[in-house]
Design a protein around this nucleic acid. Sequence first.
DNA 1: TCGGCTTGAGAAAACCTTTTCCCAAATCGA
DNA 2: TCGATTTGGGAAAAGGTTTTCTCAAGCCGA
Lengths: 348, 348
Amino acid sequence: MSSDASPVPAKTPVTLREVAAAAGVSVATASKALNGQGRMTAETRERIRDVAQRLGFRPNSLAQSLLRRRSFTVGLLTNDTYGRFSLPLMAGVSDALVDNGVSVFLCNVEDDQRLGQLHVEAMLDKRVDGIIATGKRIDRHLPVDLSDLRVPVVYAFTQPDPGAVGLVSDDAGGARLAVEHFCRLGRRRIAHVTGPAGFEVVHTRADAYRAVLQENNLAVSDPLLGAWSEAWGHEAVGRLFGKAGKEGWPDAIFCGNDQIARGVIDALRERGIRVPDDVGVIGFDNWEIVAEATRPPLTSVDMNLATLGREAGLALLSLVGGQPAAPGIRKLPCRLVVRQSCGRPPGG
Amino acid sequence: MSSDASPVPAKTPVTLREVAAAAGVSVATASKALNGQGRMTAETRERIRDVAQRLGFRPNSLAQSLLRRRSFTVGLLTNDTYGRFSLPLMAGVSDALVDNGVSVFLCNVEDDQRLGQLHVEAMLDKRVDGIIATGKRIDRHLPVDLSDLRVPVVYAFTQPDPGAVGLVSDDAGGARLAVEHFCRLGRRRIAHVTGPAGFEVVHTRADAYRAVLQENNLAVSDPLLGAWSEAWGHEAVGRLFGKAGKEGWPDAIFCGNDQIARGVIDALRERGIRVPDDVGVIGFDNWEIVAEATRPPLTSVDMNLATLGREAGLALLSLVGGQPAAPGIRKLPCRLVVRQSCGRPPGG
DNA sequence: TCGGCTTGAGAAAACCTTTTCCCAAATCGA
DNA sequence: TCGATTTGGGAAAAGGTTTTCTCAAGCCGA
């Protein structure tokens, strides 16, 4: 059925010239007929369209791009090979763009200056309409200079150049979501176990954590800074619950990521401390495969990275379309995904 | 420094025509000078090159592609948004291609027939030189028909069309690696806990598992089929170690993936069974973030997906270059990454 | 019947590069 | 000195499409 019926999948693509010849008109007329431009009888237009359809004509994007100075292609730069963050981000970007008929060049630059340069030049040579730069850390630049390009650039989840358009997650807001949730649940002694001091988000979130506690007249204990690992979660539990007096123990722990939270929960269980009955736990990142495998499943802050990517894609598109965009960093809200590790409200 | 020195980043790209004018030659001569073609005095060639350099000339890939009928661009189709498998794969593909001056279109088709069609048509319109199809399962097709395209297609880690070129991991070999390693370590009662029966690899690996046991004159117990989850790992340990007689307990467990292995190890620890002293554990996938977080760190079979991707990229390139490639499925070897969950050899 | 306007459609330029001829000048051999 | 060959470089076509101009035919009112 697929071999001889219907539009033949020509081995060599059919050109507008061939369509025009088959319809007995000039290429100019054929072009106008297919694009709804120009003036001609409805009959002629129909006939040309039929012929094009029958021949399986598809315009050569290369030729179109050359002429229009617009390729409907953008470059997506990333340095996150291992991609826990960049994957949803990239998926979001890609979705937003593909829905608008724009293709995406995948450019993995690792942390290699040379590779970055190479990619950027290749993209420019291929006349991309714009570039999206994404990373795995909000507080680091990609190893490429995108400051003086002739195409618009949008930064998503990576440090933007000054004066550029950047989208990041609202980490402070995300932290508030978690800590305020604990407060509403009636938790009073809320600890914070998080990553290394070298990350800006560690401080952003810690500040928000402190602010919420103060707003609720709760005692503020110093956040425990360590690593983004399960092992650190374990160790932190040792420090928090090692003290003699049970009354000093926290009844809630807000963790800087889901791996730490996983380590925390495992360590608590090993000590016979019940989650969420004795201690509530909330993570960050909502890495589903981890959050759903903890026992009990982990409540976590989701950075909505797919949405972030989508927004970045749309922002670039409007820039490409000539809309001026307000430069600066736009922070997108996080959301709290409630599972079972934080407990139910007292009344519930 | 970057604003007025050095090759000016022209707002509008400089064309060959401009280079030719500036050098006082024709565009034909300019082209030939830059490409090392044609005949002219060395002095002329040098002068043109200098001018091009000074003006920051870069040829317009669109125009080149149009003429050469070769775009130095390929499409990468994937349905693995979540990407534990596709990320290293894509990184490998991308590396191999970029090293050869080829750009990659990222096409996320989810499991959406319509989206797949859309992407394929867009790629064809943009005159990609070839397509790489990747997935998350070896035994499933992508939701797109790539059988009658006018460009070569390579399948990596997804089910190829008959007669096409496909690269997959050698799951049987990978399983052998694990089970033989156990045998060498002197383990005698080796169990296999793996995923659901609906996956072909479950059977491939189980068969290899059985074969190795027979070759070593060891008792073959039926593999335990379940899910690809930690929870199933837990449950499986309950089944394996629930029986009364300690002498019937396995002394090694080969797991179908790292999450199962993680569940197994956690469950063993909860029962007071020591890993690797009492029971050795080996996982599959070598998902580093999991394998390194288990206690003890997990020995695991690595499918070398980055290498697989790289090979797929190179295979496509040679196809594009006109080299005929032997159709059929090529299986690439796995490797065993030894950590501490399987124990040391008796003598060590 | 004639001048002006609309209609329908084609010719040609443009986008930018590569490549195939082609030609004038220079060089060579005799 | 003359014909043949080489040398250095240019003109033009090609690749496929879009768009601006142009133009002939048909129509209107007078």
